[in-house]
Design a binder for these strands. Structure first.
Length: 741
RNA sequence: GCGCGCAUAGCUCAGUUGGUUAGAGCGCUGCAUUCACAUUGCAGAGGUCUCUGGUUCGAAUCCAGAUGCGCGCACCA
């Protein structure tokens, strides 16, 4: 029967069939696993952004998680791998914006609803395509529990958390400095901006005292914002201290502005005097907040949301872009220069997507308090608050400190703590259309005192229809949507609370969160905080962080560099199993793996080796009418097998996939194929008249082959399942996937 | 500025609590081949483990410093 096996392993011919075999068995769903599978083992898949197709980085996470799931399933765990997809709000909107630009359509002129629906169609199409890709990669996840971040059930959980945070005083709406991207017309969180070094000029400007030639010297990189200066702050120990309490003249508007004393001014930088422009700088905003009583001018903006100068900037600059206005202001200010401007290199914040310089603005936005305790149990909260005594930050910090949550590799614990220490309140509102609209309504009548006290704000999981305070039906919903990470940060419990009844109780807390280190703060930290806040339990026990896949030259893969490896394309050529091995061997947790086609080719050769070794054993297989008499060497070989298998299990238990895979590879090729098989050749030939010996050799070979398929299965599921299916010892309808390890 | 890493064979990396001649893959050299597999086998060359000092009977491994490189965080105008 097996004699017609071809000498080459043809992955294309078998992979789809094998996946179908697994899928039809129903075993991806842990509920269907045989009775021996008892204790749950859960991994929630990091939902890929449904705005493109899977790249090699996705293949890495799929492989790592599938290895864990398959291994644990074989070990008798009730293994659940819950798949999903992320609408990826801002990122997807950026992608769609680009797409429209290419098509010559204007993103900004489209009605909100139309835009939303178009992006929705686009996202759902991508999602469907990605599901097919996950299957190609061999992902043994439970499709019956698949979730999408915009499922109604998920939105409800997310909104409930928001309402609870609001009632607990951890969500607030305020006018505060935020990061504004003038291209994308939205605010961004502190994590969504990056810093770039820019060569600018530092201008030294005289602010003269009223009716005097005396002046204070102020250094600034942004002379165009001078019309919005409402004060000058000096350090009390600076040489300008004698002017504290006096007034100076704004060199552009000629208005008189007060001189304040503030320790926030750095004595050792610039001139020891700082111009205070609250609406265009966060530090200045803070200074203004502390000196409100001393300043009679209300702060205002001179730059609008498009990065253009407003009327308040004065007739010479109004309407100009910031860059032009800077040149203009320099021209106007020249008489007030103390000296020629100096070249100055500094870090400026830019949008992490488009690189546009972030314009700090003061805007009414929604924020989450990260470092303060919630109010005492609020009656309004339907969800009990298990953790009233701690801030979101402390919940996470304590869980990590006490080792309830462990990082692999451990060094990320320090990085995590460092970030947590510097945590600020999180702006969660975005002025984009693609996302979950914030469940807040504004009463337009504000006909009673409670309304006024709350500024007309009503936070409610579902549309309240009427103002609960004054009964007005004249409500307007907030148009801003949540930062994507606000919803994905709730993913572990939001999914399990809404799949099947009992799932949350059974599968939460999950066992492992496996994801890239680049989203440690974006995602992992938020999941820990929200998980503890909302459920009182950690969302996962271990966090395994993988690196970013790079090419041979250590470059990050990107379309523009033309070094992208499409996992599906290479899997088509070399087989999925080869791609999976190439991603695992030589790759340790937290390090950026380097992947090249050569490496993948190497593991395709390994697949061929597995195929031919198996083929050899099967081709020579015959019924021998004798009781096998194992030699000492046979016994040693079987013992070596056990040793290798134990070693692999030990490595897998420690998340050391690299060594586990290498050990499996090495044992199979250089011990089994090169030695055991070679030595067995004369013994299994029909010429061997010692039937007991022939039977012993054959039994040893079959046994090792069968066991090898088991320990190779998590890494190379397709070829191993295929061979298992044709082994003479395999029982009808049994699957390697659920075999006992 | 604060913080986290890395430095081992030509290349990419392992090296788990310090303990004989420091490992793997790829690459390289030589030989073999009608045999399950040339997508192969066997053999081999190749390393002062960045430098300096310290701890120790003993250091690639622990400590301190230097040099080089990478990265994260950050409201110095």
């Amino acid at each position: 029967m097996n004699k017609e096996l071809s000498s080459q392993y043809d992955s294309k011919q078998i992979e789809d069939n094998i996946y179908k075999l697994w899928e039809e068995s129903g075993y991806f769903n842990p509920d269907n696993l045989p009775a021996r599978h008892k204790k749950p083992f859960t991994i929630i898949m990091p939902p890929p952004n449904a705005n493109g197709s899977l790249h090699i980085g996705h293949a890495l996470f799929v492989t790592l998680e599938d290895i864990m799931i398959r291994y644990q399933r074989m070990q008798g765990r009730k293994a659940l791998w819950l798949p999903g997809a992320d609408h990826a709000g801002f990122e997807t909107q950026v992608v769609y914006n680009k797409k429209l630009e290419k098509e010559g359509r204007s993103f900004w002129d489209m009605p909100r609803e139309q835009l939303y629906n178009e992006i929705k169609d686009f996202t759902l199409a991508n999602k469907k395509y990605m599901e097919g890709q996950l299957k190609k990669l061999g992902a043994s996840c439970d499709w019956s529990r698949e979730k999408f971040t915009l499922d109604e059930s998920i939105k409800e959980v997310v909104n409930e958390t928001f309402e609870k945070l609001y009632n607990d005083g951890l969500v607030y709406r305020a006018e505060k400095p935020v990061n504004w991207c003038t291209k994308h017309q939205t605010t961004l969180s502190d994590l969504e901006i990056k810093y770039e070094e820019r060569a600018d000029k530092l201008y030294y400007i005289k602010y003269k005292l009223a009716n005097s030639e005396e002046y204070i010297e102020v250094a600034t990189t942004r002379p165009e914002t001078i019309p919005a200066d409402i004060a000058i702050a000096v350090h009390p120990k600076s040489k300008w201290a004698k002017y504290i309490g006096k007034k100076v003249v704004n060199p552009l508007t000629k208005k008189e502005i007060p001189v304040l004393s503030d320790m926030a001014v750095d004595l050792n930088f610039g001139t020891g005097a700082l111009k205070i422009t609250p609406f265009h700088d966060a530090v200045d905003f803070a200074v203004w907040q502390n000196h409100k009583s001393e300043i009679d001018i209300q702060p205002f903006s001179v730059i609008n949301q498009y990065g253009k100068m407003t009327e308040e900037a004065g007739p010479e600059m109004a309407g100009m872009k910031v860059k032009e206005a800077r040149e203009k202001s320099v021209e106007l200010l020249r008489p007030n220069f103390v000296k020629e401007p100096e070249d100055y290199k500094h870090q400026v914040s830019v949008c992490y997507k488009c690189g546009t310089i972030i314009e700090p603005r003061i805007m009414m936005q929604w924020f989450i308090r990260m470092t303060e305790k919630p109010h005492a149990q609020n009656q309004k909260s339907k969800i009990k608050n298990q953790n009233v005594e701690k801030s979101l930050r402390d919940l996470a910090v304590d869980a990590v400190k006490s080792k309830k949550i462990k990082f692999i590799p451990a060094r990320f614990e320090k990085i995590f703590m460092h970030w947590m220490k510097n945590l600020h309140d999180w702006n969660i509102s975005r002025q984009i259309v693609w996302g979950i609209q914030i469940p807040a309504w504004y009463c337009q009548d504000m006909a009673n005192e409670t309304c006024k006290k709350n500024n007309g704000v009503i936070v409610s999981v579902k549309n309240p229809e009427k103002c609960p305070h004054c009964g007005s039906a004249n409500l307007k919903q907030e148009t801003d949507v949540f930062d994507t990470w606000f919803s994905s940060g709730q993913w572990p419990y939001a999914t399990l609370m809404t799949t099947k009844p009992g799932d949350f109780e059974k599968y939460y807390p999950t066992d492992v969160m496996e994801t890239g280190w680049d989203i440690l703060f974006f995602w992992v930290a938020r999941m820990i905080m929200f998980g503890l806040y909302r459920t009182g339990k950690i969302p996962f026990k271990d966090v395994y962080l993988h690196g970013l896949v790079r090419d041979k030259e250590r470059q990050k893969m990107s379309k523009s560099k033309n070094n992208v490896i499409n996992p599906l394309e290479v899997a088509e050529v070399y087989g999925t199993d080869a791609v999976r091995m190439a991603l695992i061997v030589g790759n340790t947790a937290g390090n950026d793996p380097i992947i090249s086609e050569d490496k993948i080719r190497g593991y395709r050769n390994f697949a061929t080796k597995i195929w031919n070794a198996s083929r050899f054993v099967l081709m020579n297989y015959r019924t021998i009418d004798a009781k096998p008499k194992l030699t000492a060497k046979d016994k040693k070989n079987l013992k070596d097998l056990e040793t290798a298998k134990k070693k692999i299990a030990k490595y897998l238990d420690k998340y050391d996939f690299n060594h586990a895979a290498e050990t499996a590879y090495h044992y199979f090729w250089h011990t089994f194929a090169d030695k055991v098989i070679e030595e067995s050749k004369p013994r299994i030939r029909p010429e061997n008249e010692n039937l007991a010996d022939a039977a012993a050799a054959q039994e040893t070979l079959i046994k090792i082959l069968e066991e090898s398929m088991k320990f190779l299965h998590p890494f190379m599921p397709f070829i191993t399942e295929q061979i298992y299916q044709i082994l003479p010892t395999t029982k009808e309808k049994s699957l390697l996937m659920v075999e006992e390890w």
